[in-house]
């Protein structure tokens, strides 16, 4: 079952993907099929089964609070598409962006 168009639009917005009309139509179809396959897990009895978020049973991993050398400004900006005055430059930010 294809997922509905409103959901595709919402998810594309959340994911910051400017998809074409054709891509949106195809997504609705393909995602529907994949999710249908994923639906198989809905049949499993999972009550009381703890979720696994990590494949290792390690706990309390920390590093000592020690400062280390940073990159130079030049190194930090060396891959910047656009930079100005030691900063990364971006087009204007709209306020609802957050």
């Amino acid at each position: 079952m294809p997922i509905d168009r409103a959901a595709v639009d919402h998810v594309a917005r959340l994911a910051r993907l400017d998809l074409s009309e054709q891509e949106r139509r195809r997504m609705s179809d393909e995602l529907g099929k994949i999710l249908e396959h994923a639906e198989r897990i809905q049949a499993l009895a999972l009550d009381g089964v703890e979720p696994t978020s990590h494949a290792v049973a390690i706990r309390n991993v920390m590093r000592p609070d020690e400062a280390r050398p940073s990159l130079t400004q030049e190194e930090a900006l060396s891959n910047a598409p656009v930079a100005e005055g030691g900063r990364f430059s971006v087009p204007r930010i709209l306020e609802e962006e957050e």
Binding site: E66, A67, R68, S70, L71, T72, Q73, R87
Partner: peptide, 23 residues
């Protein structure tokens, strides 16, 4: 703190921009 939350960059204020960064 002396260093940032998840890396060793120093926590300082008023430095030149992008001189306290790392990967």
């Amino acid at each position: 703190t002396a260093s940032k939350m998840f890396c060793g960059c120093p926590v300082t204020f008023g430095q030149e921009p992008n001189t306290r960064t790392c990967p």
